[in-house]
């Protein structure tokens, strides 16, 4: 139960960790966009250099980056095989009725690279940014949506509260499980139906406690005069530093390069 980690923040001190979350969010976006405009080997080469550079700068072990790939393995397989077998063009070889073409190989290869880079690229961001920084960055970056009636502050507040409560609820789940196991509950054996039924003694106390915590928190916030986003100041306001401007310059150069190639 304890292995649940959210966001997958990897705590080391690196240039990337110190960057403003907005810079990193924007950088991830730039990288994603660049992957979709790239369609030559040279462009993918530049993207590779950019990504490798980011990974090296982040000081996060590479094994953490590839962890995210497991989740898209199935998707990767499907899209690669579709591209491989269903693209018309000059035939290389065939297996039964399946025809593999040069164009198919090329498309499948690029598609695989694109997906892998997409996942690794966004992993670099989530590994170097705490969930709270991330919501902070999102709140500021999407601040303009306030003017069209989107409650940006409220949404980001909800996100950070939810993130804050995950470890607490995990710990609580652990305690409830133990309390029920002390009364002979069995959460492991039995078929699917029995297992689902055995969850009831776990979920009922968990939900009740979550609701109680929610009302307590709401009351505590109101007691301290919380009234939403308007006029609210931050303890640690986001401020761009020199390195952020340099990074933005790198983004512009990178994007220009990608479009040209």
């Amino acid at each position: 139960m304890r292995e649940i980690t959210l966001g997958q923040y990897y705590p080391v001190d690196s240039v990337l960790h110190r960057l403003d979350p907005r810079t990193k969010l924007f950088g991830t976006m730039v990288f994603i966009v660049s992957l979709f405009v790239a369609d030559s080997l040279a462009a993918y080469g530049v993207a590779t250099v950019f990504l490798v550079l980011a990974i090296r700068l982040s000081k996060v072990p590479f094994s953490f980056m590839v962890r995210g790939l497991k989740a898209i393995l199935f998707l990767l397989l499907i899209s690669v095989s579709f591209n491989l077998f269903l693209t018309p063009g000059t035939e290389v070889f065939r297996i039964g009725f399946l025809k593999v073409t040069w164009e198919g190989l090329r498309l499948a290869g690029f598609m695989a690279l694109r997906l892998i880079y997409l996942v690794i690229g966004s992993s670099v961001m989530t590994l170097t940014t705490t969930p709270n920084e991330l919501t902070d960055g999102l709140e500021r970056s999407l601040g303009f949506l306030k003017h069209v009636g989107v409650p940006v502050h409220e949404i980001s507040m909800m996100m950070s509260i939810a993130l804050r409560f995950i470890p607490i609820l995990v710990e609580e789940t652990d305690k409830i499980m133990k309390a029920q196991m002390a009364r002979g509950a069995d959460f492991e054996s039995g078929n699917l139906l029995q297992k689902a039924k055995s969850m009831v003694p776990l979920l009922v106390p968990l939900f009740i406690s979550a609701f109680r915590r929610a009302t307590d928190l709401a009351m505590a916030m109101e007691a301290r005069c919380y009234h939403g986003g308007a006029g609210r100041t931050k303890m640690k306001p986001l401020r761009y530093a020199g390195r952020d401007y340099v990074t933005y310059l790198v983004y512009v150069l990178y994007l220009a390069g990608m479009i040209c190639l």
Binding site: K175, K178, A182, P205
Partner: peptide
């Protein structure tokens, strides 16, 4: 355990 809330359901 200490908290009855953890087991009543």
């Amino acid at each position: 355990f200490q908290y009855p809330e953890h087991q009543l359901f």
